[in-house]
């Protein structure tokens, strides 16, 4: 058993360390909100008090950026990418787990290897492909390459292991076809898996940067991440305006996180459990 002083020292270290880490983790968020209320000069000078420039910054943001269009672009890309990825990849995850064969097991393992392919090695061929297909500057080009996701397939296959096979057998006895079993039994039963996967895929698509940067070249198609990046890379960036942008870009994912924390973490963990 530990003595009193030792225990106090341990507790001090634990709470001190965790407190410091928690503070450092949250600080940029606080700074972002405070920054949106300050002028660019004050932000660069390190002011950490609420200022009076909030409405001015918001106003400037809305005049420099076509906010509804940019949000619509981001939402469109993220929602289409998410719905299609979930549909295609959950079908595959279910297929790999339910209908096992030796060949398919080999294909599955080969498919998992694609997780190691760095995007940098794909972007040039993909760019040329999209160019040939006349899809540069379209949201289709952004969404298409991400739909067949080995990671999401893996996630669904792992989760399908918990799907009760009695349900499937019962449905079969009732004469349901395979696609009907999937659509009317599997999908409703697995809704929490879908919710978790939805959050993660949506967030990835919403925050995606490199590929949209390459493919979306006109202002009419740009997403919020691209807009923030170009605002911040100006020669003299207006940080107040940039802060308003980062808040607006972070708000949707932050809201999803706080309202669906359990599914959020579950989705992040994906495969481990």
């Amino acid at each position: 058993m530990k003595n009193g002083i030792g225990r106090i020292a341990t507790a001090t270290f634990t709470y001190g360390f965790l407190g410091l880490m928690a503070f450092l983790s949250i600080f940029p968020f606080i700074w972002m909100v405070l920054g949106a209320s300050n002028s660019s000069i004050d932000i660069i000078k390190g002011r950490i008090l609420p200022g009076e420039a909030f409405t001015a910054n918001v106003g400037k943001f809305f005049t420099t950026v076509n906010v509804p269009l940019v949000f619509w672009n981001s939402a469109k890309v993220a929602i289409f990418a998410t719905v299609l990825t979930l549909a295609v990849s959950s079908l595959a995850g279910y297929g790999f787990e339910m209908f096992r064969s030796r060949h398919r097991e080999r294909v599955y393992r080969a498919m998992l290897l694609t997780l190691m392919i760095p995007f940098a090695a794909l972007m040039i061929p993909l760019f040329i492909m999209m160019g040939k297909a006349g899809l540069i500057n379209t949201h289709i080009a952004v969404v298409l390459p991400s739909i067949g996701s080995a990671f999401v397939i893996f996630y669904f296959r792992q989760s399908t292991k918990a799907f009760p096979s009695e349900l499937r057998d019962a449905a079969k006895v009732d004469g349901l076809k395979e696609w009907q079993i999937f659509l009317f039994i599997y999908v409703p039963v697995m809704r929490s898996t879908y919710a978790a996967a939805f959050i993660i895929v949506f967030m990835t698509a919403w925050n995606n940067y490199l590929w949209p940067l390459i493919v979306l070249q006109s202002n009419e198609t740009k997403t919020i991440t691209l807009v923030i990046s170009s605002l911040a890379s100006a020669y003299y960036p207006d940080y107040g305006v940039v802060m308003v942008g980062t808040i607006l870009a972070t708000l949707p994912t932050l809201a999803v996180f706080f309202f669906m924390q359990r599914q959020f973490v579950q989705g992040m963990l994906g495969s481990v459990k």
């Binding site: 295609v88 990849s89 079908l91 595959a92 279910y94 297929g95 790999f96 339910m98 209908f99 096992r100 064969s101 398919r104 294909v107 498919m111 694609t114 392919i117 090695a121 794909l122 061929p125 993909l126 492909m129 298409l144 390459p145 739909i147 067949g148 080995a150 397939i153 395979e178 999937f182």
Partner: peptide, 19 residues
């Protein structure tokens, strides 16, 4: 089994393996 996994495999082949 192949029908269920085909769409995903097709997309992965086209946008990962081929590139």
């Amino acid at each position: 089994g192949w029908l269920f996994v085909a769409p995903a495999l097709g997309l992965i082949a086209l946008f990962m393996i081929y590139p």
